[in-house]
Design a protein around this nucleic acid. Structure first.
Length: 256
DNA sequence: ATGTCGCCTCGCAGGCGA
């Protein structure tokens, strides 16, 4: 079973690229982030035509998350993180697909630092930690998947010193990520490729992709009940080089 | 500071978020 995550940066503007990638790679389940489309503008019919049932959480202009599934229908169990009823951003969608709980995550970027956006990121992180603790305690097969907007270590940044004061790499942000991992989650890509340089995002600026000036910010965190099934993991890096590509590449894992 | 995208609007250019 192949599960993928892809920050599309506009699901409608990206539709030809998304459909081409789905056709080539045929993932069983896909988490999408940054739909940048209101609820009624999600391209459900085109994606269904490509062989995927989908559930989604839209929002005008910003954010937006979706889960696509080829075989079993995704059943929504949560449309937001607990802990702040005033948070209207579409950033969290939790579904059941067979015996798996799939949590599709679009963690706030947090720049500029300091400021309200960074405060929001840290609050969102705390809410994620609290909910993740509950999920991992359930002993079910849970996967936290998506754009975490965090480079966990120096190995995950092309030039760490350049990002020392960035909301994606500040020590307190990395600490929050490592505290989350500390609950018992496994970073699937790093687990299978401990020493490799792996990037999932390349800025549109300054030919970042051509220079391989990338970041690893899209992650799969597996609960202990899923980990024994993990067989492979990788990044579809070439997709980032396609015409009209997102600034992220699709990332995937294979479960037995 | 800048670069480049995608989406939106008291819209066809400029602001915002990333």
């Amino acid at each position: 079973m192949k599960i993928a995550t892809y920050n599309v940066n506009g699901v409608n503007g990206r539709l030809p690229v998304l459909l081409k990638w789905l056709k080539e790679e045929k993932p069983d389940v896909v988490c999408l982030q940054e739909l940048k489309a209101p609820q009624d503008k999600f391209p459900e019919a085109e994606i269904l035509e490509a062989g995927y049932k989908s559930v989604w959480l839209g929002q005008k202009s910003w954010n937006g998350v979706a889960v696509l599934s080829k075989k079993s229908e995704p059943i929504i169990s949560r449309k937001s993180l607990p802990g702040d009823d005033s948070d209207e951003a579409s950033r969290y969608l939790e579904v059941k697909i067979d015996d798996l709980i799939i949590c599709c995550i679009y963690l706030p970027n947090g720049n500029p630092v300091p400021g309200p956006k960074f405060d929001y990121k840290m609050q969102w992180f705390e809410r994620l930690q609290a909910h993740a603790e509950m999920l991992i305690t359930s002993r079910k097969k849970v996967l936290l998947i998506g754009d975490f907007n965090v480079m966990p270590t120096e190995k995950d940044v092309y030039k760490p010193e350049k990002f020392a004061k960035d909301a994606l790499f500040l020590p307190e942000v990395r600490d929050a990520f490592h505290d989350l991992i500390g609950q018992g989650w496994t970073d699937a890509l790093r687990h299978l490729h401990p020493d490799e340089t792996i990037y999932t995002f390349w800025d549109y600026f300054r030919n970042a992709y051509q220079r391989n000036a990338g970041l690893r910010i899209d992650h799969f965190l597996l609960s202990p009940e899923v980990l024994p099934q993990l067989k492979k993991a990788g990044v579809d890096k070439e997709v980032r080089g396609w015409e009209k590509s997102s600034d992220h590449a699709p990332v995937w894992i294979e479960l037995e």
